[in-house]
Design a protein around this nucleic acid. Structure first.
Length: 220
DNA sequence: TGCCAGGCCGGGT
DNA sequence: ACCCGGCATGGC
């Protein structure tokens, strides 16, 4: 019986070999990454890029300026990202806490103990576990594994997870069996998304080109 | 063309 | 505690 830890490292190496380093998150600054994390909820990244380009082009990629912007104007700018009304609210909910409790400074937020900060982020309306963890890992470089639909699907399809496993359980499986290194968690999650987009989309069968094909199948 | 994308919330049972 | 509809644009 091969250990889960070894299996997970093996999968990581297979993905890395196939796809190469992904160098996530696509974004120039931690603040841009946070905005992107909120905008990409259940949304194609291409659409998010347009929304972020709008913000950037108008010089609004700044916490105070975004908060001062009329909600309807913000909504218009992020419209390409979809769910633009609710995301306007969610962005503003985050900005309110970010400006009030951390002075709008990522560095200040980064000083807070990871678990405390995670709970704080989760208490913000519109920020759930994946968004919170994306912020922690990709904007703040904290060693937290981000679980998403692809992670769940890939682990399920390759028999490492029973179906109907909660976010926290999946995250524990990964974090209990991998070294807690931000760099590893960063690259691993990015590779999972890449693999998911290419080979593990919803309602499509496993295909032979998937680098994980045959992984976790041991005869005898 | 319909289906889906790097979720999350709120109301109903 | 679960379950489900709503949220919305753009690409394939």
């Amino acid at each position: 019986m091969i250990s889960k830890s070894k299996l997970l490292i093996e999968a990581y190496n297979l993905l890395l070999e196939k796809f190469g380093p992904q160098r996530w998150w696509p974004g120039d600054t931690p603040f841009e990454i946070i905005v992107g994390a909120i905008l990409t909820q259940n949304t194609n990244w291409k659409n998010v890029e347009r929304a972020i380009a709008n913000l950037k082009h108008h010089g609004f990629l700044d916490a105070k300026k975004l908060m001062d912007l009329a909600p309807s104007s913000l909504a218009a700018l992020i419209r390409p990202a979809g769910y633009f009304r609710i995301k306007t609210k969610r962005l503003r909910s985050f900005l309110f806490v970010f400006l009030n409790d951390y002075g709008g400074k990522v560095s200040k937020m980064k000083e807070e103990e990871t678990n405390v900060l995670r709970k704080k982020l989760l208490s913000i309306n519109g920020i759930g576990p994946e968004t919170a963890d994306s912020i922690l890992l990709y904007a703040l470089n904290k060693p937290i594994f981000v679980v998403d639909a692809y992670t769940k699907r890939i682990l399920e399809r390759h028999c490492l997870l029973p179906e109907e496993t909660s976010y926290d359980e999946i995250q524990s499986l990964l974090m209990d069996n991998l070294p807690h290194e931000a760099k590893l968690f960063n690259e691993y999650h990015a590779l999972i998304v890449k693999c998911g987009k290419d080979f593990c989309r919803a309602k499509k069968p496993l295909c032979s080109e998937c680098p994980l094909n045959g992984w976790n199948r041991r005869d005898s």
